[in-house]
Amino acid sequence: MSVRILLLLFLLMTCGVRAQGFAGLGTDAEGFSVPEPGRELVFPQDHGPHPDFRIEWWYLTANLKDENGADFGLQWTLFRSALRPTAGKGWSASQTWMAHAGVTTGEDHFSTERFSRGGIGQAGVTAVPFSAWIDDWRMTSLAAPGNDSLSALRVFARGPDFSYDIALTASGPLVLHGDNGLSVKSASGQASYYYSQPFYTVTGTITLPSGRFTVSGRAWLDREWSSQPLDPDQTGWDWLSLHFDDGAKLMGFRLRSRSTDAYTSATWIEPGGKTTAYGDGVLKMTPGRVRRVAGRDVPVEWRLQLAERDLDITVRAINPQSWMETLVPYWEGPVTAEGSRRGQGYLEMTGYE
């Protein structure tokens, strides 16, 4: 997502900082840069890292099918976190890196993660030419000269029981969320810079214990950075990206709070890339069927309503047991959408205990 940074809990565990809000994302941002209205996002520079901000990620999800029509979901994420506002070098560098990868089928869910300290070459991101990596996991630009560097990518990751190697080509523009890329996350004004490339077509291979599969489909890349994206009272979120069969797309999230109503936000994306942003309360996200997942009660079915677009749909998990067994565990997996529109996409849910 956007708001999806789980990395800071790793920071808190390693540095002994007291958590505020979910995973400490409401922690005071003193000394770090913070998102401000009026800043124009600049490309390709903003495809790269922003070390003066505390947290950042490059987040890819994909809905795929094999040659027999079986469904697969795929996730590749690289998180960056700054331990302190000063830079440092080598092992003293202030940047830490964490990566997550996952593959989901209708019957199985596989996940793994990796960690690195910045400054030693094991992990990092460069804007020009674009490349993001940790160990041998890679997200690398294949774009032709003159095109946006995220318009074509190759992505690779592997874990103990899976691997994938895919190529992505974008057929539409980058999308800015919120107010020209400033995405507000709470009534008290916490925010992040947030943009996406939601127009990828995908081809490639996935290797699982059951065999090697040739797959194709659609993918969505999120880019987001901030220093205090959540209010201290917020406890977790429910985030969705959806590709509808008519070419329209939707990003929406609901941030849950201990003491107030959930805060919502959405971006409607037309087939040609034109966007409409919807602020708090416009998108209605109502949890439905609940399943017991990893010892937690998790809603794996949702009703989404966006009256301004005559949208009333039910979103269902392809595999309700899509639990990421990572240092900070969470639910992440592919979904289908039925109702006033049909489609598919990805759902992420955090903070369920």
Rank of each mutant, 00 (worst) to 15 (best):
P287M: 04
V17C: 04
I269F: 08
S141D: 06
L242Q: 05
H50V: 00
R18A: 12
D238H: 10
I318A: 10
W97M: 10
T264M: 12
T201I: 10
T276M: 07
I120V: 15
M251R: 07
M98R: 09
W58T: 09
S265N: 02
G21F: 06
A262P: 12
L11W: 06
D312S: 04
S196G: 01
R291H: 15
E348H: 08
L41M: 15
M324Y: 01
A29F: 01
V17T: 14
P160S: 14
A167R: 12
G252C: 14
S340F: 01
G288N: 12
R158F: 04
D165C: 00
W302R: 12
K249Q: 13
G48F: 08
V300T: 08
D108V: 02
D108R: 15
A99I: 01
T260P: 02
V103N: 06
F53W: 13
S186F: 02
A317N: 01
R212T: 05
S171G: 14
L25F: 14
P49A: 07
L283Y: 04
H109R: 03
M349C: 08
V155H: 00
R154L: 01
T214H: 05
D246Q: 07
R39S: 14
W237K: 10
S163R: 06
A23M: 10
I318W: 06
G211S: 02
S188D: 11
T105S: 00
R138W: 05
F162Y: 14
G73S: 04
F115D: 06
T14D: 03
R212H: 08
G252P: 08
P129E: 03
A101Q: 02
L208V: 13
S210C: 04
P85V: 03
Q122S: 11
P160K: 09
G295H: 02
V215S: 06
Q228G: 00
S186Q: 01
A277H: 15
S188I: 09
F43H: 04
P287T: 01
L283K: 03
S241L: 10
P229F: 07
V17A: 07
L83V: 13
P329D: 03
G159M: 10
A123D: 06
G247Q: 05
L41C: 03
P173T: 06
D231H: 15
S322V: 02
K249P: 02
Y263G: 10
S149L: 15
G279I: 08
H100G: 09
S163D: 12
D246S: 12
H50T: 01
L64P: 00
V298A: 03
G38M: 10
D28Y: 06
T267N: 00
Y164H: 04
A123L: 05
L176R: 14
G247V: 02
H100S: 05
W220N: 07
D161R: 05
H47V: 03
F115C: 00
G26I: 13
L150Q: 05
G339T: 05
R158T: 13
S265M: 10
F72N: 08
F213E: 00
G236H: 04
S186H: 04
Q228T: 01
F213M: 01
A62T: 01
E338M: 07
L83M: 14
S131A: 11
S257C: 02
M324N: 13
A70Y: 13
D148S: 02
D233R: 14
L41E: 07
S183R: 09
A62V: 01
S188W: 07
